[in-house]
């Protein structure tokens, strides 16, 4: 089966499941319900504890982690090089869920705040092996690397939607989060070594380019177990 077919079927199931949950009536209070959640999505993998505070509102306390490293995701045209990209976004968060429509208990407004104790991305350009300068073959140290880094660490508010019922009616259910964190203003840095040392002078341009990169979208699948 082709990968695109699998994606299509997954989305179809997602839509059907969500539609069924969204249109399900509000039939029981959230008060005092408890659950633990494992999740996976655009903010990495994580875990949460959920608790129903009042009939139509609940709170979730959790943590998420992204440790991702990828190679050759970025190519510099005309410069024989490889690249290494890494992202680390680790947060603890407190979210509140509110059911605005009594007749659609599977549709929730979600707001909250997270503390990102790590929120950084790095892209390193590494010139290819056997880099020659005229008739001289340079060592890796002589050639050096260029690294562009961005750091968003700190407190970030969250706003989003929750789709499908928050708490399982049985022991287990799945629901979804769609939203975004609004991260702090990023701190950019470019560092070069070897013959690429002067690239540090482009920190200002890089800072300008990423100043508006403050939305961290969240598309997340939650696996909930009722306590």
């Amino acid at each position: 089966m082709r990968f695109s077919t699998i994606i299509f079927l997954t989305l179809l199931l997602f839509c059907q499941y969500t539609k069924a949950q969204l249109t399900e009536g509000y039939n029981s209070s959230l008060s005092h319900k408890k659950q633990v959640t494992l999740n996976i999505g655009s903010q990495g993998a994580g875990a949460e504890f959920g608790y129903g505070i009042v009939p139509r509102a609940a709170a979730r306390l959790g943590a998420n982690f992204i440790p991702v490293t990828a190679y050759n995701v970025y190519r510099v045209t005309g410069f024989n090089s490889t690249s290494k990209a890494s992202a680390k976004f680790n947060n603890i968060h407190l979210l509140g869920d509110f059911i605005p429509f009594k007749t659609h208990s599977g549709f929730r407004l979600v707001g909250g705040v997270a503390y990102f104790f790590k929120a950084s991305g790095d892209l390193t350009i590494i010139p290819s092996e056997h880099y020659t300068y005229g008739d001289i073959e340079l060592s890796e140290e002589q050639v050096g690397t260029v690294t562009a880094s961005a750091d968003w660490g700190g407190i970030a508010p969250y706003l989003g939607l929750g789709l499908a019922n928050l708490f399982p009616t049985g022991h287990f259910n799945i629901n979804f989060d769609l939203g975004t964190y609004y991260l702090g203003k990023p701190k950019a840095r470019m560092v070069g070594t070897g013959i690429l040392e002067s690239n540090a002078s482009q920190t200002g341009q890089f800072q300008t380019n990423i100043n508006n990169y403050r939305f961290m979208p969240v598309l997340q699948l939650n696996f909930n177990y009722k306590l």
């Binding site: 510099v76 410069f79 013959i195 002067s198 482009q202 341009q205 380019n209 990423i210």
Partner: peptide
């Protein structure tokens, strides 16, 4: 709306002081 290319106007700068 935040999607500006991070590498906009960024060059690879090479020193010749080898």
């Amino acid at each position: 709306s935040a999607c500006t290319k991070p590498t906009e106007d960024i060059k690879i700068i090479v020193d010749t002081n080898i």
